[in-house]
């Protein structure tokens, strides 16, 4: 019984174990013919701290903050800054090999390209 609990504990993200704050970042989801585009606010995160996994149809974002130090003694704050975690179910037909992400100004964009077969096809009409 005890063993079972320990094993479960190990599966949780590190920051969850540490009991530091874990935020669910706000996201936008867009789509066009080629891809689904997911955009998330993750201020304070660098590429090194990013972990994006797509397993079966579940996309998981885990973003750790950079290790910048607090510039002095804390006087006041809104909340304790923490890492980010969120997962999504994505539709079938994502080309897993071609998933790409970029990070700019604390905003993460994940491009999830649709497989060839799922893209709308243009049908040429020939005049007879």
């Amino acid at each position: 019984m005890t063993q079972g609990i320990v094993r479960q504990e190990e599966k949780k993200p590190e920051s969850y174990r540490d009991r530091s704050a874990l935020f669910s970042p706000p996201v936008d989801i867009y789509e066009n013919d080629q891809e689904i585009l997911l955009v998330a606010d993750v201020p304070g995160v660098t590429e090194d701290g990013l972990s994006i996994t797509l397993e079966k149809n579940e996309l998981t974002l885990h973003a750790k903050r950079d290790a910048r130090e607090e510039p002095g003694s804390l006087l006041a704050r809104d909340h304790r800054p923490g890492d980010y975690f969120r997962s999504f179910m994505v539709p079938q037909g994502i080309d897993q090999e071609k998933v790409e992400a970029d990070l700019r100004e604390g905003v993460l964009s994940v491009h999830l390209p649709k497989s060839e077969g799922l893209r709308p096809r243009k049908i040429e009409v020939k005049s007879g």
């Binding site: 201020p43 002095g72 003694s73 006087l75 704050r77 905003v107």
Partner: peptide
């Protein structure tokens, strides 16, 4: 967050995007 760094004050704000 607002910090006291001795000779100066530091305001750290999250402004993604």
């Amino acid at each position: 967050s607002l910090y006291d760094a001795g000779s100066e004050l530091v305001l750290r704000a999250e402004v993604p995007g």
